[in-house]
Design a protein around this nucleic acid. Sequence first.
RNA 1: AGGCGCGUGGCUCAGUGGUAGAGCGCUUCCUUGACACGGAAGAGGUCGGUGGUUCAAUUCCACCCGCGCCUACCA
Length: 894
Amino acid sequence: MERETIDKSHSPQEISRHWYRFWEESGFFHADAASQRPPFSIVVPPPTNAGESFHVGHAFALTLQDVVVRWKRMCGFDVHCLPGLDHAVISAQTAVERQLAREGLRKEDIGRKAFQSRVSKWANESGGAILSRLRAMGYSLDWTRFDHDATISRSVREAFVSLHAAGLVYRDNGVVNWCSQCGTALSDLDVDSSETESGRLWFVRYLVADGDKRESIVVATTHPETILGDTAVAVHPADARHRGLVGRDVTLPVLERRIPVVADSAVDKDFGTGAVRVTPAHDPKDFLIARHLGLPCVNVMDERGILNENAGPYRGMDRLEARRGVVARLEQEGLLVSAIPRQISISRCRRCRAIVEPRLSLQWFVKTRALAEPAIVAMEEERVTFIPESWRKTSIEWMRNARDWCVSRQLYWGQRIPAWTCMACKTLIVAREDPARCPDCGAVNDILQDPDVLDTWFSSALSPYSSMGWPDKTADFARYYPNDVLMATPDAISWVSRMIMMGLRCVGDVPCRKVFVNGLARDERREKESNARGDAIDPLDLIEKHGADTLRFTLTALAAPGADPSPGEARLLGHRAFVNKLWNASRFVLLNLDGEIARPEELAGELSLPSRWILSLLQKVIARVQQSLQGYRFDLVAHELYHFVWRELCDWYIEMSKSLLAEGATAAKTRRVLIDVLDATLRLLHPVIPFVTEELWQKLPHDGASIMTAPFPLADASRVDDPAETEMGRLKQLIAGVRAIRSLYEVEPRKKIGVTVIARNRDDREFVERHRSPVLCLARVGRLDVVSANTERPHTIRHLAGDLELRIPMAGLFDIAAEMTRLSKERLMTASAIETLRKRLDNPQFVARARPEIVVEHRERWGALTTRMEKTEETLRELTGGRQSDGSVSLPEE
RNA sequence: AGGCGCGUGGCUCAGUGGUAGAGCGCUUCCUUGACACGGAAGAGGUCGGUGGUUCAAUUCCACCCGCGCCUACCA
């Protein structure tokens, strides 16, 4: 048979590109709605196309997702998993506005149409960068179904119109988060309010109008410039200090406007002076008070954050300029009582980082509470389950507290709101199709569409079914909805919550049955990965340096529930070494295939101990890996396979196979076992490290076109062989025991030594004889004797390897004092272990109340330790005798 | 302030009501034909603190301390 050659190490870049193209061109990623196989579908949380592309957090969630996808596919499922990419309307628009600014232009200068085509171009480039990273990571996504614009806009209209008809979407004036740099409203989730800055709390005196000059009320404010928009001063109705002023007017400083003093229970009596200025256009709470009491609203700022005509002398200034002006004026007029330093929390736009201020404007809102109720019920009834479970509570909590969601954005780029106004009769029309005429007055002209677009998350929330062609009744939708699972990062939990609300409302079922939430990716400084900070790690750099398999294996191994992975350099190197180890184990197998190879059915006959042992172990590994995958314990999957490959297959089986391959009697079967075990191992590893496993699998004798369509291994109970595992355990202990003594006495690694085993009985003797060959080879023993207890020679190194007693005569000198120190330490350790057990066994309560098998186990352990103790003490006595004669002992050369 | 989570060897993390584990790092020795991205052997932890439940607590409970994430408030 002609076999491929294999290098000493592999080149991840080349094989990755090669195999990804092969998989994609072979159509292995496609879902097939006509398939007879059971369906399995996954919702992809779309990476935001925000120009910063794709960070480690995405790589983390998507890697775990691809592990599931590949595993399910190998288990025979027809898997539906599409690449996702959301519009990120603000980011896209901001990026293009910056480009324009460099050309000295504003979006208004080039017009909506031209602007949109520029954003579209930008989004394609930026999106392309993300999509190429998804490929580089090896994600097996169905690219043939990736079509993110055409159907989405129909889905969005359908959802919006039906929600509006049900009264769950409405248009109203409201105080919303306003980003004056982006020039748009933002939802609560678009705002980052974690930052504080040093500011001041100013105390300002408002004089009572028509009153005594001494009558006044003092209010506190952190934003003095907005007093220009005050329309009242509010106090608590039960506050005795101010009761007399309620109903009277005060004079607004600077503008000299008369405003009333009102009572409202929303005021906190204990804060500041207990009197609060009411600025309905710039504070959500004040807005509610004003609405309640019928107070006017005065907006003093335009959409760019510049003070407007309502600001009197400060018109045209920005906020800080106006603030300085107002403060100076108040000081001049003696109305500034005091100013104390204070940390003020500031809100920033998550996209452009500009400071966000509340501002009154006409917007579209989604009634979150009403949508949340059925979603909360669905979670409580476990129609959606969370992994880890605790996220359910977080999601419910989020839904309970969510305020109405502002979904309109004053942008040029994004899904236009399907609402029109008839200029003739002012009727508001919300419709699926562009209206040709006004349904009210019949006008055909001057029906203007709302200029606003929808929040990115509005359409993203629909993606679990919009991507399947909803609202059309497509075969995909019928087959793959609801999705089986959604795999998300923790910061997407509010997005997931909205998705569940929208799914239940729009299509009447949850978007997915399970939500898996992974840990939060951190950088090497253990800080949260952040796009906004701009120094996030680009997974592409890691891939180029270490290979996608290494990155994937690292992320998988770090995916312990609740743990926050940080794929630092050292960690990646450790896992890269594993990939290399696997490569070289495969190389060993490939280089040893010349010669007869037993047919699979021949393994049913007699087999060597190591072969029985590794096959038995493999079954257990398969079972544990399956179980871990089912429980989303990706960390355990990685650790299990790491340990099996390195610590069992390589360290023991491959080592022992060397002598088995050298003997005619065992060689053919050993080749078969090596191939079978490696083949199964590669298939087990394929979901985690797809590229290298494909490369190796293709080089090995194999059936089928690709490892990714090969069946995932199933445990074969008939191969489980506990006696073989026990026997192998004893053998490993014997070899390790000799090695430990060699190392302790710094025996030259090349030098062969002699070992005598003290056989207690026939069983011990036969055991050693049976395994003479691996002991000679793996422990570098030149001569192995088995003697009865009465033939032991004094003054040799004595060692207990498990239950076997070894005597190792050392060539040359050995230090009695050192040997005694070692044994004394061992005696001490053993004594303390015996003491602990003795105490328990002497306690009548323990014997009476502990489970009987525990008591038995304690007795057995106590017995074994006592025997060990006796041996150790015996040796110490012998050594003491030896020292009495000459202080050290010279032993004959072996 | 509230919700959730986390505190186990130098680092990152598993785990368990009854002998404390892994990977990386560290120490010593070794280029022996799969692999120096390697091999062999080691060192290293009173499992955050205090109480409680129990024959027995790193594990269960309570409180405390420290850290993280999220939400809210901040005139």
